[in-house]
Each structure stands twice: as structure tokens, then as C-alpha cells.
Amino acid sequence: MSGAWQQDCDSAEGRCGDEPFVYMLHVGRYGDDVTGLVVRYVNEGAPFDPRTECGCYVMQGGRATDTSVTLHIKLEADPAAPGDGPGCPAPEHPFASETCRTALSAPPCNTLRFDLSGDEDALDGRLTCDDAAADVTRRFVPARGKTRRTCLSADHCPNLPSTGDTPP
């Protein structure tokens, strides 16, 4: 279960063509607990291009079994919990896309929940935005490269909306 997983956009089961965002999971499993990062990308051009990164979130409440993993991320910054909320993309590409800026300033929901199950080759499941289930399933497949363990600090994100601020 540990390692990097990216949303499957190549196969028919993946079906991420119509989605505004795609996700990459950087999972660390410790016994039954799961943590790591969820990195969101704008679904434009080449998928998972670092220049399209649009938010880096810490997994919360992660639990795993041999065949399933559940976790959630907080899309909306919480002033009462410093450090909560989105991380930052690479400094040279500060959320240039209008789609991304909108998503960051007005998140569609507070928490996004991932309920996935499968095996070492693929994880299938639904993403739930607060309590409303999405109408499509998502498939994640193992991704190449190292597991990412951190997001860039706010110092590198001049255009990141600060907690509680009104977005531009």
C-alpha cells in the first residue's frame, strides 16, 4: 500500500477525462494507520505535470487493511488549525490557472474523502465531497518515482491564499 499512486487516466476504467482535477496519492502505511500527501493537479495538458499542481494536502484519518484504504483531506483552510489546508506548488508556477485559483479560493467542500479498495496493482473507489458521493468511481495505479513527503512552505507561495483571507 505504501508508495505513490496516481489517478488512472489511460485506461477505460480510469475515466478522468471529464474531471477538472486529478489526484496523486503519496502513501505511507504504518500498521493500520496511513498518512502521506494528496497532490491535486489541474486536468489540463499532460496529466500530473508539476506545472499544473494545484494544492498539496496532508492525509488525515487514514486507515488501511490489506485490501483497502480510507482517508480524507481538508480542502478548506481552518483558521483554528494552523498548518491545515492546502500546501504549495512549485514557486515558478504559482497557481497560474484560473481553474486552480477558483478551486483554492472557493473549495467545493470542506473535506474530500477517499474510500479505495483493491490490490497492489490498482485501487478503485469513490471520492466523497463532504457527504455527497461523487457519481463516478476513480481508479489509482502505482506511479513511478519517489514518494513525496512534503509540500513547499508558505514562504515559497506568494499567491497562496492565506488562511481566512478573501481570495483575489
Partner: peptide
Amino acid sequence: NVYCKHVPPDERTIFAAF
């Protein structure tokens, strides 16, 4: 703390609250 296990100390520059 599962986040402390996963992220090395020098990489906790953001989300330190975790």
C-alpha cells in the same frame, strides 16, 4: 503519530502542526 513517522524532521517545513 503517524505523520511524525512518515515525514523526516527536516521536511516538516509546512504542516508542522501535524
